[in-house]
Amino acid sequence: MKVQLIKLAHARSGDKGDTANVGIIALKPEYYEILKKEVTPERVKAHFGEMVKGPVQRFEMPNIDALNFLLHNALGGGGTTTLKHDAQGKTISTALLRMEIDVPDDLAIF
């Protein structure tokens, strides 16, 4: 079945120059492997489309059940230069959690 990531993960995002970072954290440890399998850099890049002009990098943090993504050239020039209302990418966290992913049909989701 398909579910929105927000059912499986929480997240926080921020900025470094024109790059936004989004860390997504599994709400239960057992979700981590699903996130790792489903939330690939390619799919994140596709999810954001034109919003992310550069590449997407992914880093694994199994110790805290998290994946950290760097979205390059995603902030309209970044920080003080950008014309975007969300200049620091503070809300990109939940934009990523809108993504739909495949999970096993018998997965218990609270």
Partner: peptide, 12 residues
């Protein structure tokens, strides 16, 4: 955890 991932690049 949410703070640990804030403005994080390569975690290693």
């Amino acid at each position: 955890k949410e703070q640990l991932v804030y403005e994080l690049g390569d975690p290693k």
